[in-house]
Each structure stands twice: as structure tokens, then as C-alpha cells.
């Protein structure tokens, strides 16, 4: 039984660390597309956290809304800005500088 508690604590610590790290990188990065992808990843990780906190209702909503719909909204905005930025946008398959 204590095995479960210890392993669970490790799991929770890793998820919490992952959340904080994702948030840190998301808010510090300079590339908008990277930030959006990190936001999606953050939403999915947060859904895992809700499960661990004991709130499966919230996990369902977070997976669908926080990651899915919000991510789509941001990607849409990115698309709009990429078209706006137009000529100095890099080729899609090209590596970032």
C-alpha cells in the first residue's frame, strides 16, 4: 500500500513539475507557434492532473475545451497572422532560424 502512495507521489510530482515547466517555457518563448503547441500540451497535462486530483468531470471538460477548442482558436489566430505577415514568413517545412 505504501508502494502505491510513494509511486503516486512521484507521479504527481512529475506532473506538477511538467505543468510548471510547460508554463514557464510557454510564457518565455519568442515563437508564437511553439507557444501554442506548448499550450495544447499544457492543456492535456492539466487533464491528467485533474484525474489525479480526483475530478474526472473537469478532466473531460479540460481535454475537450482547454486543449482542443482553445488550441484550435489559437492556431486559427496564428494562421491569420501568418497570412498577414505574408512575405517574410518562412516556408512551412523550413527550419526555424
Amino acid at each position: 500500500m505504501t508502494d502505491v502512495v510513494t509511486t503516486g507521489l512521484l507521479l504527481d510530482g512529475l506532473i506538477a513539475l511538467l505543468l510548471a515547466g510547460l508554463a514557464f517555457r510557454l510564457l518565455r518563448t519568442r515563437d508564437l507557434f511553439e507557444a501554442i503547441m506548448l499550450f495544447v500540451a499544457y492543456g492535456l497535462t492539466l487533464a491528467l492532473a485533474w484525474i489525479r486530483v480526483g475530478a474526472p468531470d473537469i478532466a473531460l471538460a479540460e481535454a475537450a475545451l482547454g486543449a482542443g477548442v482553445t488550441g484550435a482558436l489559437f492556431l486559427n489566430a496564428w494562421h491569420r497572422l501568418a497570412v498577414r505577415a505574408g512575405s517574410d514568413d518562412r516556408l512551412p517545412m523550413e527550419a526555424d532560424p
Partner: peptide, 18 residues
């Protein structure tokens, strides 16, 4: 939701040549 994200990326995240 993974499907939604993939399709949204392919349709919106890929900008054509400059």
C-alpha cells in the same frame, strides 16, 4: 480531440509558400 488538432493544424497551421 487529437484528430481535431491534427486537422486544424494541417488546414490552418501550414502556410503556403511566401
Amino acid at each position: 480531440l487529437a484528430v481535431v488538432m491534427t486537422v486544424v493544424f494541417v488546414k490552418r497551421g501550414w502556410v503556403r509558400a511566401p
